[in-house]
């Protein structure tokens, strides 16, 4: 046996992938609270198709880490029933695209029971699910759909873009007394088998901590254009902002981190400063996040704007398979750069 000695970990420099940061958050909470359990398809021995549960089975055993049959309706409902009885289930829907086979349990039950009970019943479920495209998985395995869930009342919708937020938001989600949909983009997880954004590995504090749900993060300060976005597109927006800085255009980038609750104040504060709004969304264009954010400005004070709002989103088309087609519809750095140029006239 070879023992490799490594230097003592330092909080400020230890780096984790988003996947590992999420798992660490779950694991630390499970150590603290025996009412937490994890279930879903391939969350046990496999460790989650997108590594969201790696190592948990070995640590907590099969009574708390449960592989389910491919029966999303049954196990989504099981999560709700267990939560009603005071447990704190974490349930994985392998791809958000699979919501169609269990949506009744999610939006008619998990999301509505607290309201229908006049606040007498709490349903503290964390529903974690993989979202997003960019790797030619086609129309049924590449969607984001956060707009769909944010549209329906009763669930919080949390969408981390980086490792440190992923851990803190996961801990907050577990401790929240509401159903929380935790949507992780495959492209920010730091998976070894998929092209990864360099920011999918980053410093993560070792102790448990919360990142408040409903608080956006200004990830780049700027004075000319406000870019409001979420998830993997945060990184595309940051890359675009760096490129366009060479043209003397100074972009502010806001990572919403959650759609429900939505940090309206952060958006208004920034647009008040810059007078220009670009929304970047990997979800579909119409009736979604980008329209909602534009409406915030329209309802508050349209005079804040010095130029019309511009939206970069997936045009209303299923996500195509061929790479040439897929990258024509996804929000890329190039599309964001041209949008910034457009908004600056």
């Amino acid at each position: 046996m070879v023992i490799i000695k490594s230097p003592a970990p330092q909080v400020t420099t230890r780096k984790l992938t988003t996947a590992k940061a999420m798992v660490e958050g779950i694991s630390q909470e499970m150590e603290r609270d025996s009412s937490i359990f994890v279930m879903g398809e391939d969350v046990g021995a496999y460790g989650g198709i997108f590594s969201s549960t790696t190592g948990l089975l070995e640590k907590f055993g099969p009574s708390r880490i449960l592989d389910t049959p491919i029966s999303e309706t049954a196990f989504m409902g099981l999560a709700t029933g267990a939560a009603v009885e005071g447990m704190r289930p974490i349930v994985e829907l392998m791809f958000v695209d699979f919501f169609g086979v269990c949506m009744d349990q999610i939006y008619n039950h998990m999301a509505k029971i607290h309201y229908e009970s006049g606040g007498n019943v709490k349903v503290p479920v964390v529903l974690m699910t993989a979202v997003g495209g960019g790797y030619s998985d086609g129309a049924q395995h590449s969607q984001c759909l956060w707009g769909t869930f944010a549209h329906l009342p009763g669930m919080k919708v949390v969408i981390p873009s980086n490792p440190a937020d992923a851990k803190g938001l996961m801990i907050s989600a577990i401790r929240d007394d509401n159903p929380v949909l935790f949507m992780f983009h495959k492209g920010v997880m730091g998976l070894p088998w998929m092209a990864k954004n360099p920011r999918s590995i980053g410093p993560v504090p070792e102790e448990p901590y919360e990142v408040p749900i409903g608080k956006a993060s200004v990830v780049r300060s700027g004075s000319d254009v406000t870019i409001v976005t979420v998830s993997l597109s945060v990184h595309h927006a940051l890359d675009a902002a760096e490129d366009i800085a060479a043209y003397g255009i100074d972009c502010e980038v806001i990572d919403l981190r959650s759609l429900v609750p939505l940090d309206r104040a952060a958006i208004l504060d920034s647009v008040t400063k810059t007078g220009r709004l670009l929304v970047v969304d990997e979800d579909y264009l119409s009736f979604g996040m980008s329209g909602e954010i534009a409406a915030i400005i329209a309802e508050s004070d349209p005079r804040l704007l010095r130029a019309p709002v511009v939206r970069v989103a997936v045009p209303d088309v299923p996500i195509p398979y061929a790479r040439s087609l897929e990258y024509a519809v996804l929000p890329t750095k190039e599309r964001i750069v041209s949008a910034i140029k457009e908004i600056m006239g």
């Binding site: 309706t73 409902g77 267990a82 009885e85 289930p89 029971i113």
Partner: peptide, 29 residues
């Protein structure tokens, strides 16, 4: 929904079955 007697119902056909599994899971756990 009556938490004091663990009674609930659903207006959607058959969809009351899955939450009962969760209540049973909690009791067994």
């Amino acid at each position: 929904f009556d938490p004091s007697t663990h009674f609930s119902c659903s207006g959607i056909i058959a969809e009351g079955y899955p939450p009962a599994l969760g209540q049973a899971f909690s009791f067994k756990y």
